[in-house]
Design a protein around this nucleic acid. Structure first.
Length: 499
DNA sequence: TTCGTAACGGTTGAT
DNA sequence: CTATCAACCGTTACG
């Protein structure tokens, strides 16, 4: 934290450095007076234009404070803000209504500012006199040990180290296909532009919206089959060099360039496993290699996912049922259905109750994101169908009890689970030149204010064959609630705020 | 202003 | 069971 602070504190070249600082204060990142004094003006009215501007930008970054641009301060220099219908009322500390009002869209009555956005209350405490009175550390940022989510500068919620929910990733791609600029997508979805750029670039390259496989290790290259071949080479030519063995492994097709052991590995094998050639086949006698395991690590690497779950919930070995596409790193993980948006959205699971039953491990976690999505993006879905008990089963990211719970993300789905929302090893998408151009008529109208219905997307949008991860994951269906979450994402208004 | 990218701090899962 | 490692993540700041 302090590192971040310093990085920005001394980043004089950035015009919006103060914005960042204010945001960090709002996060509760730097709650001590010592920290707070440094960049701030000592008194109110003598503040610089830049600083005032910065505060305005901060306020605009806070989604709860959709105040008229004409006079943001008039509405925000109060301690409390309560939303009543579409009108928000600013309150003084003592509880008397000051009469300031403004329009706030998409806000339910009676919700306080801090529930709309974790920045809000801290900013409100900050603003009067432009002096730091008190930094209110909200629950979401109160204690790092209890923090399950963070808020970026755009007000979006994210979990550090974890991928964005697939629904949002999909939304990014959808909006891009509608012709919306990445910067606008970034603002609208409150996802950093770097992330938008990355996801779009990846989609452009691979046709998949999926994140990469996190964790795990590279598959062993010294498979029993490789060891067996090395032994045979050594037996047939005791004076053979390790690099010669390596060449022969490649030449004989035992390995390819992706999984051929290094010379040092071969040396180690020779030393440790084949050192005593008087005991031939000791390896096979001890650890009988399955015929599958010797087949094709080369087709799995570098995106092996040995722990991927099969639809039946049983562990699937890497090579079991892996379609091998000659030499190419096809890396299918046994996805049976086409890589269409419908499958990406888990429609198959939605239609198939038996499949839903297989997704129990995933459902509650996605639900956590559902709540996040609902909070962050005004949705047409008014009814919250979240299964509380399902949420509570997430032991890794339990729902906090603070009033900010709607902001707290609990994106704890494992990669395999997350991937499980998607399915399909390709086939339906025909790459045709510009990936970013609309591929269906219903998506080809980048006009302003377009409201996109989920069904439009489902029916008209198809994803290219995913050459990375998507087609290597077994299908793991999603629940109805997850589908609802995705729908709520789709129900977003596409109106972009041009700056 | 927009966008690509590297640094960063984080998570994950195999070993 | 824990530590290590190498993959990936999204945010941030820079250019």
């Amino acid at each position: 934290m302090e590192k971040k602070w310093r990085r920005n504190r001394f980043c004089k070249s950035r015009k919006n450095a103060k914005v960042t600082e204010v945001l960090y204060l709002a996060h509760g990142y730097c709650a001590t007076a010592e920290w707070a004094r440094i960049p701030l003006p000592s008194s109110g009215r003598s503040n610089s234009v830049l600083f005032r501007k910065s505060l305005v930008e901060v306020l605009y970054a806070a989604p709860c404070l959709q105040v008229p641009r004409a006079s943001p301060y008039r509405h925000t220099c109060r301690d409390k803000v309560t939303f009543i219908g579409d009108t928000f009322h600013c309150w003084k500390r003592k509880g008397s209504q000051c009469g300031c009002r403004g329009q706030a869209s998409g806000v339910e009555p009676g919700i306080t500012a801090s529930r709309i956005h974790p920045f809000a209350e801290a900013i409100l405490f900050w603003l009067p006199g432009y002096r730091l009175i008190k930094v209110v550390k909200r629950g979401i940022m109160e204690n790092r040990e209890q923090t399950y989510g963070e808020v970026n500068q755009l007000g979006g919620v994210f979990v550090n180290g974890r991928p964005l929910p697939n629904a949002i990733r999909l939304r990014i791609v959808e909006l891009a296909q509608l012709g919306i600029r990445p910067c606008d997508i970034s603002r609208q979805l409150r996802v950093s532009h770097g992330c938008v750029s990355k996801i779009l670039a990846r989609y452009n390259e691979t046709g998949s919206i999926l994140p990469g496989a996190i964790g795990g290790s590279k598959p062993r290259v010294t498979t029993p089959n490789v060891v067996k071949n090395i032994r045979e080479y050594k037996q047939s030519d005791p004076g053979i060099f390790a690099w010669e063995i390596r060449d022969r492994l490649l030449g004989d097709g035992v390995c390819d360039k992706y999984n051929v052991p290094s010379v040092s590995s071969i040396s180690r094998i020779l030393r440790n496993k084949i050192g005593n050639l008087s005991q031939p086949h000791q390896y096979e006698n001890g650890k009988q290699a399955s015929p599958q395991s010797s087949l094709s690590y080369n087709h799995i690497y570098p995106y092996s996912y040995p722990n991927a779950m099969s639809p039946s919930g049983t562990k699937m070995s890497n090579s079991a049922g892996v379609p091998v596409t000659g030499g190419h790193v096809s890396i299918s993980r046994g996805w049976p259905s086409p890589h269409t948006v419908s499958n990406i959205l888990g429609i198959r699971a939605f239609m198939d109750p038996s499949a839903i039953a297989c997704a129990e491990g995933y459902a509650p976690k996605m639900e956590d994101w559902t709540s996040v999505n609902r909070a962050a993006f005004p949705s047409a879905h008014g009814v919250n169908g979240i299964d509380k008990s399902a949420i509570e089963t997430d032991i890794k990211y339990p729902q906090p009890t603070s009033s900010l719970s709607s902001y707290v993300p609990a994106c704890a789905y494992s990669p395999s689970n997350q991937y499980g929302v998607y399915s399909g090893p390709a086939g339906s998408y025909v790459s045709s030149g510009h990936h970013w151009q609309a591929q269906g008529s219903s998506l080809s109208h980048p006009g302003a204010g377009v409201s996109m219905h989920p069904s439009d997307i489902h029916s008209s949008m198809a994803f290219k064959h995913a050459v990375r991860d998507g087609d290597r994951k077994p299908p793991s269906p999603i629940s109805k609630q997850q589908h609802e979450a995705l729908s709520s994402i789709h129900a977003l208004s596409l109106s972009t705020s041009s700056s």
